[in-house]
Design a protein around this nucleic acid. Structure first.
Lengths: 207, 207, 207, 207
DNA sequence: GATGAATGAGATTTCATTCAT
DNA sequence: TATGAATGAAATCTCATTCAT
């Protein structure tokens, strides 16, 4: 209701809205705050202050707090997907492909730690609308396709379903950085590489 | 006898308080609610209602909401630790040991899904006091010790630090059930077993 | 949603809720405030203060401000209806009946000026739910029936539809007190009686 | 020419300001909106949108929302007064005069329903300044004079004070259209005419 | 002059906590 | 000891008004 401040291009709904500086500032401030204390742990005026914006301004760009969370989730999921799939040749040499994929994840986690953490939050699930949740699939489906292809080519083990294998790698990776962030672990370059090797073996070895 | 519920036993602090039925009802109700909607998404009176207890009663057993969260966290972490370590012979045959460990995790996740989910929540981090957080170590240290022992015996690969290996397995396992809970995956017995095998290979294989 | 503070008897919905002192205080404070400045002109904390009650307490008794307005409207419409119809013999001598009816209106307007004014407010129409609006009919229908009966008995003129006649009297009466309240008119006993006579003539005379 | 819109003509204050198209558009949009949802129920930017004008533009023509309400009230009261008094011969044949007066009211209510409704709103009372309120008198005084004259000529009954009689007619008339607007009544030509007759009898009959 | 994005004071509503019973 | 009605601080959201363009 009321005039929507921005209108999107004709494409599918929940399109990334045009990036005005204020909108970016709000999303960025919200991301940092949510990543640290969870969606329910952050008050809207606090986001406004971090974004150097009036409280009311947030409501010009987003219908309500829930819409802000959804927009943020979609933007970041899309950014992650872009990072993982862009210019990646799924037909390439398997091990190189796997390493490249792993490195892209590492770069995302290192360069955008708040985004990485936010995407893995649990407590925003209550906020996410079906459309946002659908994005999850769009991120994972190319990865699953790659897993299946590698199973076909007998590179990856076939005694584990592709979805399961994918989940194991994803979980292992996420936990690595989550544990580091919690201060229980400090990851040297070597640790990350050895973890990558271990995951590769998880996918390929059968004895 | 006017002893405050919290300070009854002489032992170290945050000791499991005497288990009165009301206290149990409160913890159990809180666990279910928190697991579903996050700590910040649940109002105290709602916990009281689910526990069939007056709102004020919660404050007889717990100083405040934060204390309730911490007590819950500690109880559940301890329960998990007990499940994982009790009657487990760390000197046994490695693969059997690993399988047993994996199966215990599975049983915990299956029998106490709310507890499992609650322990992995992020949004209670702000609530947890140092003491609660310390418990994390107490749960993980015997596992790390086991990992290290297996590395010594050349069963587990040594090119990955024990903490890292442990983290990878833990993350893989948690993600499996998280994904199932989100509805993206349904885990058959065979899936869980094949995942276990894959994790075993991650730890042992080096080529 | 949430626990309703009070439950009603088994009868039809929007039953007058049991009259607790706080609830009465809130309704009474709201009535005074709304009558003076309109529903949209009064903030909830102000009602709370007038009622010597915490702001939150209002939300224990009423779902939201709108529900408070509706409850108030219903209670007052019912009170008015009771006043107008209670122990009134519709078969009595016409002029005496008319005078009695008029006097009852006068008493209501004099004794409960805020209620009288509130019921005639226009700006709460946006707030009223269908059920509240239906009450309007329940108040007016016995009056219309009386008008029709008097037309049948050739006491009231028949060249004006009963609904129209009723509306004219009602409007004339309301305006009398509205104008007095606005300070444009001061009504002596004699004025009210002469107005009553004039209205009687409006209903009966045909030349 | 930097003259403020409000202070242009030399005449008495709150003079009808020069009628620029934008000013008219704003007043007209405000009238429609206020009539439907009350002064407090309409946001200024919404008026701007309905008027196809920038929000800020409203503040070029009116000091603030209150001033807008007052200007609107004055314009419409004046329009009503003009309609009722212009080219009306107060010395004419009484019944014809009364009918003409009634018909003018009907035409106003029919042709400018929003204005009619707005003038009867209660929730703008808090907004009206003394000057606006004084207009009420200017509208009513010629009518009262006519009533008094008719009483002198023994056409109107004299047992009711002129102010009271006037109030009764006015109230009866207003209620008629208010009830129609609320959907409780639909007024045919015949109803309006019979109501007029009844009101005439109210003023003239004494037995 | 005209605009409408931006603002922050203030409105509505929620909820952790208290306290009289 | 147990209760749950009551509270008010804090959260979400709205809107009259301003001001840079």
């Amino acid at each position: 209701m009321k005039t929507r401040a921005m209108t999107s291009t004709s494409n599918a709904s929940k399109q990334t809205a045009p990036a005005t500086p204020k909108r970016e500032a709000i999303l960025s401030a919200a991301l940092e705050a949510f990543a640290t204390r969870g969606v329910n742990g952050v008050a809207v005026p606090e986001i406004a202050e971090r974004a150097s914006v009036g409280t009311g301004t947030i409501y010009r760009y987003f219908e309500n707090k829930e819409a802000l969370v959804n927009a943020l989730y979609c933007e970041e999921k899309r950014a992650l997907r872009r990072r993982l799939t862009e210019h990646l040749d799924p037909e390439g040499e398997p091990r190189a492909l796997f390493d490249e994929f792993w490195n892209r994840l590492v770069r995302f986690a290192r360069e955008r730690p708040a985004a990485f953490r936010f995407l893995e939050l649990q407590d925003h699930l209550a906020y996410l609308d079906p459309e946002s949740l659908a994005l999850e699939h769009r991120v994972l489906s190319p990865i699953r396709a790659a897993c299946e292809a590698l199973q076909q080519r007998d590179v990856f083990r076939s005694d584990v379903r592709a979805e399961v294998l994918m989940t194991l790698i994803w979980g292992a990776f996420v936990q690595l950085f989550k544990t580091e962030r919690a201060g229980y672990l400090s990851l040297a370059e070597a640790d990350i590489n050895s973890a990558r090797d271990a995951c590769w073996h998880m996918c390929t070895s059968t004895r």
